[in-house]
Design a protein around this nucleic acid. Structure first.
Lengths: 164, 164
DNA sequence: ACACAATTGTTGTCGTCAACAACGAAATTG
DNA sequence: CAATTTCGTTGTTGACGACAACAATTGTGT
C-alpha cells in the first residue's frame, strides 16, 4: 500500500524507496484545513507580538485586558472574563500581576460587595498608549505579509466568523 | 480621569457612574488586531475539531501527524517535526501514544542507525480514512459559518501568509 | 422572614502545549 | 583519530484552557 508512493518516487527519478526528498514533504489534505493553517499563523503572530512587546514585558492576554479595562472602566471581573473568553480563574492571577505592576487596580464595588470594579491606574493609562503604539507596529509586520487589502480581508473574515 | 466615562454614562442616561451596560462591552482597538481575532477563531475551531473527533479520541496534532506520515511513509522524526512546526521533544510522546494504539510504528533506519522511519500500521491506514471523513465533517461546520466562498478566501489568505 | 439557589472572586488541580537544556548513540567533518 | 553535529529521548519550565470547590454576598420563592 506504500507502493503508490514508492512508484511515484521512482517515476520522479528518486533513488530511494519510500524516503522523502529533503525539502518536499507532502502535507496531504492538511493545507485544506482551516484549523491547521490558522494554528500556524496564530503561532507566528503571537511570537511576533511577544517579540515586538518584549521590551515592555506584556503578553497578548495582558494587552487585551488592559485595552478592555481602559475602554470600560468599572467593569467587573466576570464581565471582562466572558468578554475576552478568558476563564475567571485565569483572570485572577493575570490581574494580580497587572496590579503588582501598578497598571490596574481592583476597587470594591459599592453596589455589590462581592464584585470588584476594574480600573487602570494613571500609570496604566499612560502605559497603554505606549502599548498600543507597539501593537500597531506588530500589526505592521502582519500587513507586510498580506498587504493592506489582504489584512483587511482577513480581519473581515475573522470578524464574520465570530459574529455568526 | 474616569470623569469622562462617568459623564458619558450620565449623558447617555445611565444611572451608575462608570458601570458598563450588560451586553455591550467596548473592545476598543482589539477587533482590529488580527492576533486577537485569530486566537478566538482558532480556539473555536480546535474545540469543534476535538468535539467532532471525540468518538475516535484524536486531537488536532495527532491528526496532522497521521496525515503527513500517511502521505510520506519512511519520514524520519526530525523532518516530520520541522514540517509540522512541532518540537522534536513533543513528537516523541505523541508518537509513543500513536504507537501504543497500533496506528503508527517506528522502524529503525538501515542507512542511519540514529533515526527511525515512520510508517502507519495497516490499522492506522484504515483508521486515517475514517479520520479524514470526520475532519471533513468538521470542516463543514466551518463552512457553515463562512459559506463556501468565505472558507476558500480564508484558506487562500492563510496559505498566502505562511508562504510569504 | 427564612431557607435555598445563584453569583463573584478566589484557590487549587489537571492536562495540553511551546520552549529550552541536556544527554547517549551514531554519523559527519577536519 | 579527534572534534563537531545530528537524532531521538528525557526532563523541566511557564503559559494556557478547563474544571471543581469554597466563602462571602446577593437574589428568589414561599
Amino acid at each position: 500500500m506504500n507502493d503508490r508512493a514508492g512508484q511515484a518516487a521512482i517515476l520522479e527519478g528518486e533513488a530511494t524507496r519510500d524516503a522523502v526528498e529533503p525539502g518536499r514533504v507532502d502535507l496531504d489534505v492538511l493545507d485544506d484545513h482551516v484549523g491547521y493553517l490558522i494554528r500556524r499563523v496564530q503561532l507566528w503572530i503571537f511570537q511576533d507580538f511577544e517579540r515586538t512587546l518584549a521590551s515592555v514585558d506584556i503578553r497578548p492576554a495582558e494587552y487585551s485586558v488592559l485595552c478592555v479595562v481602559g475602554a470600560n472602566p468599572g467593569l467587573p471581573q466576570t464581565k471582562l472574563a466572558e468578554t475576552l473568553g478568558i476563564e475567571r480563574a485565569r483572570l485572577v492571577r493575570l490581574l494580580d500581576r497587572l496590579e503588582a505592576r501598578n497598571l490596574a487596580k481592583r476597587v470594591p464595588s459599592a453596589s455589590d460587595r462581592r464584585s470588584h470594579e476594574l480600573h487602570l491606574t494613571r500609570e496604566g493609562e499612560a502605559f497603554l498608549v505606549q502599548l498600543k503604539a507597539l501593537a500597531r507596529e506588530h500589526e505592521g509586520h502582519v500587513e507586510q505579509r498580506l498587504g493592506a487589502k489582504g489584512r483587511r480581508d482577513l480581519l473581515a473574515l475573522l470578524q464574520r466568523f465570530l459574529a455568526a
